[in-house]
């Protein structure tokens, strides 16, 4: 009896795991199957580096969107990475453990807030502040960067804290006993020993920022153009897919799938770098 249920559970888990993996594979195959032929037909260079996105005229250059995605992501990193790493260091090194054990799960909970809520806050609060103080339409590259920077904070903080806490206590004690201050210990020992985990947290945050769609559509303005200032309205790769997919047909539709392929590749590269960094940390311990 016991043996049967044991086997049954194993089979059930196997089927679940298998279907999850095959679903992922099918999605990847579907996107590649829809997108890749277009890239061959249209020409990779023309697709990536032409600034002409006029689907009704058969022009599919995604260069402005690539530039916008890169700028928005870079901006998000400039906001989110320093704040996140500083927050993680503060929580793990300066705050009593009992307090940290309350704050960390709370911050992780922020990751569960739907992105449309972040977008809403961006539209209602952030965009007017930017418009009134710096000019421009408000819905802009800057607004997108700030909102995304905030959205990646839980990822950066949580993974950074984990890797900082994994630094052996004896390193800290050794450093302090040699007459180092808390801050000297942090920057000469703790950060060095947890560097790969901190980098991984930033890269994972970056992946999240590149892939984020709803919040960016709401706050970045969505004009297809190469931004000349942070106050310009921009449209990212993800926003472009989401905005046009509902009515796109034929070549236009395929071009959107091809955009997905490009995104897919970028995110896979980022995640592999992150997982290599994380694994390096595990091996070191």
């Amino acid at each position: 009896m016991k043996l049967i249920s044991e086997k049954g559970v194993k089979r059930l888990l196997m089927i679940t795991a298998f279907s999850a993996i095959s679903a992922l594979l099918l999605i990847a195959l579907f996107i590649i199957n829809e997108g890749l032929p277009f890239i061959f037909k249209y020409g990779l260079k023309e697709f990536l580096f032409s600034s002409d996105w006029q689907p009704h005229l058969g022009k599919f250059g995604i260069y402005p969107m690539i530039v916008a995605s890169l700028w928005v992501t870079l901006g998000a990193m400039l906001v989110g990475a320093p704040l996140g790493v500083a927050g993680a260091l503060f929580l793990s090194e300066y705050v009593p453990k009992s307090v940290m054990n309350i704050i960390k799960p709370t911050i992780e909970l922020l990751a569960a807030i739907p992105s449309v809520v972040y977008g809403f806050i961006g539209v209602m609060v952030l965009a007017p502040i930017i418009r009134d103080n710096f000019g421009g339409p408000g819905l802009s590259l800057l607004a997108g960067s700030i909102i995304l920077g905030i959205m990646i904070l839980p990822t950066v903080i949580s993974i950074s804290i984990d890797s900082i806490l994994a630094v052996p206590r004896s390193y800290r004690e050794g450093s302090l006993a040699l007459g180092a201050t808390t801050w000297q210990t942090i920057h000469m020992v703790t950060i060095k020993a947890s560097k790969s985990g901190i980098i991984a947290s930033i890269i994972l945050g970056m992946g999240r920022a590149i892939g984020e769609t709803m919040a960016v559509i709401m706050v970045a303005g969505n004009s297809v153009n190469i931004p000349h200032s942070p106050l310009d309205s921009v449209r990212t790769l993800t926003a472009n897919i989401a905005l046009e997919m509902s009515y796109a047909t034929g070549l236009h539709r395929q071009a959107l799938f091809a955009t997905g392929v490009i995104l897919f590749i970028v995110i896979i590269i980022l995640n592999s770098i992150a997982s290599v960094a994380i694994r390096k940390r595990m091996v070191k311990k």
Partner: peptide, 13 residues
């Protein structure tokens, strides 16, 4: 007042 601990742990350098 310097200290040598029971478990010898050099810093990772």
């Amino acid at each position: 007042v310097g200290m040598v601990f029971a478990m010898p742990v050099p810093l990772p350098m």
